[in-house]
């Protein structure tokens, strides 16, 4: 991009996703999370720590709200004032929703967070100057800032513990923003493997760390463009469309009998994560 293209056809470099003119091809990574299966056990979160070199911040910093859990499990209660939570709790794994029209992307002054052709909301640590505007504009608050220099902080990665660090993932220093990447390091490996073999990534060939760990297989990850992928079929079965800010099924009278929904669809970020509502037996 030179100065002239900057002024002439800047829009070619900046798509507002989801777009019709340049649809994602051949990959659009997306997720489906079945909240009826999710037991809230936190295995996904720990797996994320292991895979993505997340620092353990310790009690003091956690108390200050500086935890770095890219994947957090939220626990909600029924809010009808019952004495006992006799229909249990509701767990929600919340991580970056990889929005197609991500509020974080447009506001970053240096373009450190932007959209990949695969539909992942990427974060370039080297480019980040730490203005934190992205986090300020994130409706889900799933972006985590390095308030401290964790690699040099005592007891974050003391000797030996640092040998566990995943060499495929950068260890972030102070002053940069980070968040869930859909385990892009795994995606990249799978894509490269597929490319050298002259094919596309097969469904199930790449798993995110959280998905791989999840004991109840509540998390499905895959290529939404591939009509045979599990994630695509799940989205289709739930009649959730990526580029809608309100789903047709929800506009029907009496609502829908399907469980699929996306959080804050009405804000038009077009998130890439579809949740499936928790079900509770009505006979008991």
């Amino acid at each position: 991009m030179s100065i002239s293209t900057l002024f002439e056809n800047y829009s070619e470099y900046r798509h507002i996703h989801p777009v019709d003119d340049v649809p994602h091809n051949p990959y659009k990574w997306a997720m489906a999370i079945d909240l009826d299966a999710c037991s809230g056990c936190n295995a996904c979160s720990v797996a994320c720590y292991a895979e993505n070199n997340l620092p353990v911040v310790g009690r003091e910093k956690f108390a200050h709200g500086q935890a770095m859990h890219w994947m957090r499990i939220e626990r909600y209660w029924d809010e009808d004032g019952r004495e006992f939570p006799d229909q249990g709790a509701r767990f929600l794994p919340m991580m970056c929703q990889q929005c197609e029209a991500a509020p974080c992307e447009t506001v970053c002054p240096v373009g450190a967070t932007n959209h990949t052709p695969d539909g992942i909301n990427s974060q370039i640590y080297n480019r980040c100057i730490g203005s934190r505007y992205c986090s300020a504009n994130c409706p889900y608050k799933v972006r985590y800032f390095n308030w401290w220099d964790y690699p040099t902080t005592d007891n974050v990665w003391p000797a030996e513990m640092n040998q566990q660090l995943n060499p495929d993932v950068t260890v972030r220093g102070k002053g940069v923003m980070e968040k869930c990447t859909f385990c892009i390091q795994r995606v990249t490996v799978a894509k490269n493997d597929a490319k050298t073999q002259g094919r596309l990534v097969r469904d199930g060939e790449v798993q995110t760390a959280c998905q791989q760990a999840c004991p109840t297989s509540a998390i499905t990850f895959g290529n939404l463009v591939d009509p045979n992928s599990t994630v695509h079929r799940k989205w289709q079965a739930q009649q959730v469309e990526l580029d809608k800010d309100e789903q047709t099924k929800d506009m029907a009278e009496g609502g829908s009998e399907l469980r699929g929904y996306r959080i804050y669809e009405q804000l038009r970020p077009f998130p890439s994560v579809m949740y499936m509502e928790r079900v509770r037996e009505s006979a008991i």
Binding site: M1, S2, I3, L6, Y10, R14, T106, V107, C108, P109, V110, G111, N114, R127, C128, I129, G130, S131, R132, Y133, F145, N146, K174, G175, V176, M177
Partner: peptide, 27 residues
């Protein structure tokens, strides 16, 4: 800024890698 030493990234200076700041950002 978190990384004030990189503040010049926010300037639209010509560079070989053709990396520009994000002109969409109010910042």
């Amino acid at each position: 800024l978190g990384r004030v030493w990189q503040i010049y990234f926010a300037l639209p200076y010509p560079n070989m890698r053709q990396v520009w700041p994000n002109f969409q950002s109010p910042l």
